[in-house]
Write a protein that binds this DNA or RNA. Structure first.
Lengths: 244, 244
DNA sequence: TTGAGATGATCTCAGTATGAGAATAACAAC
DNA sequence: GTTGTTATTCTCATACTGAGATCATCTCAA
């Protein structure tokens, strides 16, 4: 039997039926606090419960495209958003309807407008990661992994620049790290470090129009550099508990 | 409509039919060279072409379980094998049969016996990563991601100990790093570094029975410590090209 | 038996990176 | 003006890294 004959005779229903969804962990920083986008489910299962935005992949659509579409449906923004694949979850009973494998995505964006509830969602809102409601499905586990990944990526990639505007000050960048890592950083050392990592930021030659709202001199403005990896990396303050 | 009523009325066929497979990138070190396990496909599509071992997930089986099962079918070993999820691939046309989403896994093992060809494979063999045949599907892309992940994980986790036996010498550990990173390391500095990272290795108090085959004193033996993360990390020699 | 070569292990030294904090200057708000 | 805040630069002690010298121990072959 040739390859083409084989494919004609092939019966797709011979394989167990599985549905594939994408779920997006969209992060932004509001008021110095890391927030995640959640939607209130309008229909069973878990009707009324908050969950990560997501949905079934469509025929002819790649996984990345599906994730970008789901995110755009909730935020209205596809621009200036960094999105990357995270992990997949396929416990047999993770969805009461049927066998569903979920591919999770992580997205980062600068200060975003209020989210729009998508078609099958009752509501959508940004939640501070320290004030989360109980989530549907295994979404708490997914979110936990996503936060750890985000914290880790900040160490060795210039990802933090995805949370700020086109141009930014070193302090703005520092506040991103502080929000995601959840700990204050030593400002002078942070400043030295950022400027010493090749390709992380480049000076625009400009400064802010005025000092900060509570005083202080005008700050120099920078834009993202061309580095894809930070070397040497910015390491998080000690986390003894995670090592063993 | 209550949740239970909803679930009874639910029609799984309302969602697009997708099949989910797991593909395993199994790595080991043979003769100081990193090798990957490949199987020769016995049936279309890509009959006769080499591919990563893998297959469809079964009903009631978690993704991790499916990956471990596929690996065991080819190697006969489930013991002493580290396995972890890597990424998922779902381009609509990546398999000519139907829409297939593949969840890839990365596995590491010490020197393994010759592989067994599984049910639907014509043959199975270890290939040095520098002498690979042309692979089926998008498996070259998957393998590329897997190798990069493996190289990266060696930096900040004690993963290298999964490639050696229960007890090992510092030199054996160094040869793992050299094989995976594909570059020679400065032996004295490596030695100093391994012993200075808390929890990476612990001494057994023993030494090898004799010196190396080409001479040299007996080496001290160590076993894996209790660290889950290496701190500070072991960094790869400069890789300027990957930074920008 | 002996010498050559290989290997394990330790040490030195210079260069670089980090953590902690002092010091200086520019700004907002009162 | 005065006060408090913030951006930026410096200092200094400590830690980590790359490169290489040193030395003892072992295998192998002459």
């Amino acid at each position: 039997m040739s390859e083409s004959e084989y494919l004609e005779a092939y019966d797709p229903r011979a394989f167990p039926a599985v549905a594939v969804t994408v779920d997006v962990v969209a992060l932004t920083i509001i008021g110095g606090v890391l927030h995640v986008l959640l939607v209130e489910r309008g229909e069973p299962p878990y009707a009324g419960r908050w969950a990560l935005p997501g949905g079934f992949i469509r025929p002819g659509e790649d996984l990345d495209q599906a994730a970008a579409r789901e995110l755009a449906e909730e935020t209205g923004m596809a621009d200036r958003v960094h999105i990357e694949q995270l992990a997949s979850y396929g416990a047999p009973d993770r969805d009461p309807r049927m066998r569903i494998v979920s591919v999770s995505y992580l997205a980062f964006a600068p200060d975003l407008p209020d989210p729009q509830a998508g078609s099958d969602a009752a509501d959508a809102a940004w939640y501070g990661v320290d004030r989360l409601p109980k989530l549907a499905f295994d979404h708490e586990q997914i979110l936990g992994h996503a936060l750890e990944r985000a914290r880790s990526k900040l160490e060795y990639t210039p990802l933090a620049t995805a949370f700020v505007g086109e141009t930014f000050t070193i302090s703005e960048l520092r506040r991103v790290y502080e929000a995601v890592w959840g700990a204050p950083l030593h400002a002078p050392n942070f400043h030295r470090k950022i400027l010493s990592v090749p390709g992380f930021v480049e000076s625009t030659g400009e400064t802010t129009e005025s000092g900060g709202s509570r005083g202080g001199p005008r700050a120099r403005l920078y834009r993202a550099g061309d580095a894809r990896l930070l070397h040497p990396a910015l390491l998080r303050p000690e986390r003894e508990e995670e090592i063993r």
